[in-house]
Write a protein that binds this DNA or RNA. Structure first.
Lengths: 79, 79
DNA sequence: CGGATTTTCCCTTAAAACAGGGAGAAATCC
DNA sequence: GGATTTCTCCCTGTTTTAAGGGAAAATCCG
């Protein structure tokens, strides 16, 4: 448990009553990947992170000073 | 430009007046990675995505129904 | 305390990302 | 319109991730 992403995943997994193994199966990834995510490894593929977050019902969003004007200029953006 | 991440990156890069090449250098990644990010490739390493977002001053945050109780139980979480 | 479950962390093999070069297309700028 | 810059998209070699097995350490629970 080294960064916020890791602890968020751990927390949600525990709350869901899942083992690393079970979460891995549901997400369609290997068991070691869950272990690595929960231990702060940032060299995972985005794709695999997203699979795990989807199972845990965690959404990812982006945030920046320019974000507001982005939404103003791109009203059709799917976010 | 296929998903929101891709278009957010493109938008911020343009607004920063950077070329793909220049952004790549600032982020410490290869030029092709920027191209791929802006074209929706989700198989990039999280680490590299974070490097790029850092340069563009884009923050990532997480969002879930359990999030609130997470913050209540982990007041020291660095998010 | 014990037994069962789970996690940590090693290994191997296969698949994939990555950087950097390059060249043509496309956009941008006089 | 022509020159210059930027982007798209190929290819090559190197490095890295990912899966799954396995075994010891840790945790859980009756």
């Amino acid at each position: 448990m080294q960064n916020s992403l890791a602890s968020i995943i751990l927390f949600h997994r525990k709350r869901s009553g899942l083992t690393q193994q079970k979460l891995a199966e549901l997400a369609g990834v290997g068991k070691n990947l869950i272990y690595e995510l929960e231990n702060g490894k940032q060299s995972v593929r985005l794709e695999n992170l997203l699979k795990v977050l989807r199972v845990l019902n965690i959404e990812l969003d982006f945030h920046s000073p320019l974000r507001e004007s982005f939404l103003r200029e791109s009203p059709d953006a799917e976010c």
